[in-house]
Amino acid sequence: MRRYTLIGPPDQAMNATAAALNPFDIPASQQLVDVLDQLDRVLIGKREQVTLALACLLGRGHLLIEDVPGVGKTTLAHALSATLGLDWTRVQFTSDLLPADVVGVSVLDTRDNRFQFREGPVFTPILLADEINRAPPRAQSALLEAMEERQVTVDGTTYPLDPGFFVIATQNPADQQGAYPLPQSQLDRFLVGIEIGYPDAASERALLEHGDTRRNATQLDSLLDEERLAQLRDACDAVYVSAPVLDYLQALIQATRAVGTGLSPRAGLSLVRLSRAYALIAQRDHVLPEDVRAVFPALAGHRLTGQVQSGQARAREILDQVAMP
């Protein structure tokens, strides 16, 4: 069995500690590596992005993908849902989308003269919100509220969403004509913002050779189920964050505030959560500064400038300025 790690070979002592601490044993954590490997086969050459997306899912956050069409955003959503054994729904956000189109609507049942709630597309484990910046703010905020609260309220009645509710939203940075860019406060609801980008030459060559991967994506084996995912999410919280790493996290957040609007304390907490998830994927029971460094641009990018691309560049500058522990 191939073992993949991001940082270096895990040693025996660490594995023993991890086994003692986590509610799952190390072979089970190996499942995450298998998940990654499978996703990697679908989305060729995008290991970093796929890892971040998985970390985002484990960290109970939502994912914002900013990229031009055709680079595999939908494929990623497909592959994630299939691999994790979850259902998914897709909503194409357009300029005439109404909140009811997202959360659902109450309709009058003529047989017993009562209003009956028809669940909207948000009642799903994974929601792919395509071109979220095309919808007017009303529809956007309906979704964003659902993301934050993991529940929707229609006509005074509150309906809980799926406990693992996970949104993958996409937006097209190149085409801002007639778009409603997400405000800063709502961008903060997305734990991770990534670009997928074009594949490199070798990957693209392989892609061309093996044909459309989206069809492959629907035929993937499901490696996890909902229960297992919940366990892994709990395991994230048990990952140890040492004092020097916390100092580093704080220094990074502090550094973002030097120019313009920096990261909020809520973003700081998100950074801890994301680093833990990332460390767990790397099969470690503790966070290394390298984990923080790896997730920081994805976390900070869209929050700093409102755009993933420019924000991540800014975040990398900050990484170069702050000394690692």
Binding site: I7, A323, M324, P325
Partner: peptide
């Protein structure tokens, strides 16, 4: 802290020998 001071000592020693740390470089 004691452990951090030890780490800084190693960094000082190495940079004394011509291997200063590069910004953005992790300990490992």
């Amino acid at each position: 802290s004691r452990d951090e001071a030890l780490w800084h000592r190693l960094c000082r020693l190495l940079s004394l020998n011509g291997f200063p740390r590069v910004p953005g470089e992790s300990a490992a």
